[in-house]
Design a binder for these strands. Structure first.
Lengths: 220, 220
DNA sequence: CTGCATCCGCTTCGATACTG
DNA sequence: CAGTATCGAAGCGGATGCAG
């Protein structure tokens, strides 16, 4: 059998946006990248996390992403894992911006939609954009069993997934964490809904009270 | 006949990015928004500028964008024009970021791809990101017959399309203008290739020499 | 001319079943 | 676990038609 590297149809526009959409504009592609932003995953993990994707599409997209230099296959201890290349991680910024734009669409509520706590690694820096801290602060977060480290430094917020946790750790449901980041919950309201270990001042540094949330609202 | 407002298939993910892609992730949709960013256009103008789109798709996408509150129909003097709502203009930032990410894809050259000078209004602020000026400076640009005003202030660069032109105007081909913004051409190289009227120092303020271009390269 | 609507062949998508 | 194979349904692209 011949490997057919499927080439997606091009817009044929000499424009950086159109060229970008030529390779990441197809259905599911950016969501695959979203899954890989926090770190490498195996095929089956991808399939599970991307609830709803057809298995043939997942393979096809991964092949295309690989041939375009966005994703690479690596041999881990347990088998094959898919990881973003450096070029691929550059998609974080546009994806974060698009997520920020789309944030008001979440106010209609979760309606049987699936949810994965790893998606918070994209959402939290977006919601906290503009928050800075010197010296840097780090907060461990555990939401729905998923552990991450939220770091705020002079450049702004970022989320890393790594084994060692900082001294201060906040454990709560994803809703509470998002509520805190989105400004719907104050720290006083959120803390009793979760479990805080460590220094409460870290929380106020990371989720500064009275912050003005980028208040784009839809006027449907 | 019944208006059928076609609803695009949802990913069913409770995630701002996925919700955004639910409504602007389909083929052609973001390119329609790109056309409207500089200002309202009529149906036929859209069709021409978006070389390659099928007429039924254009109608369908415009209807969907309208029902999602991103585009609105207005009655101009000459007929119907399509314009972005305020919510729609918020897409500029993610689109600019995605275009910036995709900029290296242009280095393979234009290969019979179509080109519209109005696309520069998206590309130039992207390429010049990080450049600031106090007090603000404005440069008139005419590329391939399309006129725009490039403004740089303390918040960075932006492009506006408006009738009145600033005192300093640079007229050149789109290639030269892009070369200048991308750093491939110095001011000394570019000026003889075009026509400069006014103050050359405006050029150096807008296209500062020795600027480090966000040097993401593909390692295909 | 503008601003679409309709038709049709092709491609892509999604769901399910199956395999090394 | 990590995919391949198949097939009906939906979406896309190009051509054409037509009213205002």
């Amino acid at each position: 059998m011949m490997d057919k590297i499927k080439q997606s149809r091009s817009y044929g526009h000499f424009c950086a946006l159109a060229r970008a959409l030529d390779i990441v504009g197809e259905r599911w592609t950016l969501l695959i990248v979203r899954e890989l932003l926090p770190g490498p995953l195996r095929y089956t993990e991808l399939k599970v996390s991307l609830a709803g994707i057809a298995t043939n599409l997942l393979v096809e997209r991964l092949r295309a992403l690989e041939s375009n230099g966005i994703v690479e296959r690596r041999l881990g201890e347990t088998g094959v894992v898919y990881a973003l290349t450096r070029w691929g991680t550059g998609l974080r910024e546009p994806m974060e911006a698009l997520g920020n734009w789309g944030a008001p669409l979440l106010t209609t509520g979760r309606n049987g939609d699936s949810f994965q706590p790893r998606w918070l690694t994209l959402a939290l820096p977006g919601l906290l954009r503009g928050v800075t801290a010197t010296p840097p602060v780090e907060l461990g977060l555990e939401a729905d069993g998923f552990r991450m480290v939220l770091r705020v430094d002079e450049d702004g917020p970022s989320v890393i997934v790594r084994p060692d946790q900082p001294d201060t750790i906040f454990t709560a449901s994803a809703e509470v964490v998002v509520g805190l980041a989105a400004g719907g919950l104050t720290i006083d309201q959120a803390v009793p809904l979760g479990d805080l270990q460590g220094d409460r001042r870290i929380l106020s540094a990371v989720f500064p009270p009275g912050r003005v949330i980028a208040g784009r609202t839809r006027e449907t």
